[in-house]
Amino acid sequence: MKNILLAGVLAVCIAPSAQAQKFMTRTGKITFDATTKTSPEKISGKNNEVASILDGSNGQLVFQVLVKNFKFEKQLMEEHFNENYMESDKFPKSDFKGNISAPGDVNYGKDGTYNVTVSGKLTIHGVTKDVQVPGSVVVEGSKVKLAAKFAVKLADYNVTIPSLVADKVAKECSIILDAELMKK
């Protein structure tokens, strides 16, 4: 009896790791855009070194970016982004920790597009906020493509826009995420 119990406990403990299907990338893409109608130029940056892991067994999902890896068309804008807005020496990373709200909806064994909602904690500029973001999970063989588009209010993350350029930078910037994760 004892042995069976022990076996059962062990099975429960080991089962998740045995089932675990983890998907990972270090080359995901995030583009942000804070251009408004009154902006004299496009205010947008790209990061092509987004790291992410998705645990298919429970829908848990993390993202991490180095702020300095955002590249801009204008070098000066990149400098201002790092120095004045994101203060990337003080806050070098932005990340997200969360999970797919209904992890059971996605079948990683079957190719297809699954629309999901992801909720969790988004940390930007040292400020952590609870967010809920709609997105899609596309399963293609051993690849999982994640895509999402959402808006972030700069003020929520204590990113201040100086009054001088207040009408040239959007108060709310759009973030587009595009990542192709491979089975680990």
């Binding site: 790291a51 645990d55 848990q60 993390v62 969360g98």
Partner: peptide, 15 residues
Amino acid sequence: GTFAQDNLMAELENG
């Protein structure tokens, strides 16, 4: 759950 996410994050950072 949160531990697992921290583990995932650690996994990202380690590599």
